[in-house]
């Protein structure tokens, strides 16, 4: 019941914010320039190592318990798996999010800008059971953490 109340309250707020936000929509970015910046080699890499090499220039990372990954033990639907990553360390430059057993493992990169706090969430697709991996670049070094997520075929989702 608490859940219901929460989401009701939240939604009322979000709708109001949404309407205000829509007013200022204009595509100021030049699409060509942006597409060029997209790291094709990293995102199209079929293996973890190739993806990490292309994205970060290295494959070895230090396992760190300062990185927290929040993801379900079992994905209720592999098409929408909520993942949150946070890192309790200073000088974080970027976070890479990978799904080890996806056809192309690199899912997203997050590059911190001014005042960036390493605390990101998104929802990703997972084709198979496997690890969700976060690689955090801080002070020029690579740190990582992983969390196993089971992806199953549902009886009624099929």
């Amino acid at each position: 019941m608490t859940t219901n109340i929460k989401r009701r309250v939240f939604l009322k707020g979000s709708l109001a914010a949404g309407t205000a936000g829509v007013a200022a929509s204009a595509g100021l970015l030049a699409p060509q320039a942006v597409v060029a910046a997209w790291n094709e080699k990293a995102f199209k890499a079929k293996s973890m190592d190739d993806a990490l090499n292309a994205a970060l220039g290295a494959t070895s990372t230090d396992a760190s318990d300062k990185i927290k990954i929040k993801a379900p033990d079992i994905a209720e639907n592999g098409a929408v798996v909520p993942v949150s990553i946070s890192a309790d360390m200073s000088g974080v430059e970027s976070i890479a999010l990978l799904a080890a057993n996806n056809n192309t493992p690199l899912v997203a990169t997050f590059n911190m800008g001014a005042g960036g706090v390493p605390d990101v969430s998104t929802r990703i697709k997972m084709a198979n059971t496997g690890d969700v991996i976060a690689v955090v670049k801080a002070g020029g070094k690579l740190h990582s953490a992983r969390k196993s997520v089971k992806v199953t075929i549902g009886g009624c989702g099929g």
Partner: peptide
């Protein structure tokens, strides 16, 4: 009744995908 799915569901309901459809 399914606590594992419930966590994912709550994460999704925190900013539900149907928000734009209401508008």
């Amino acid at each position: 009744i399914d606590s594992v799915s419930r966590d994912s569901w709550k994460a999704i309901e925190a900013f539900p995908p149907y928000t734009p459809m209401i508008e």
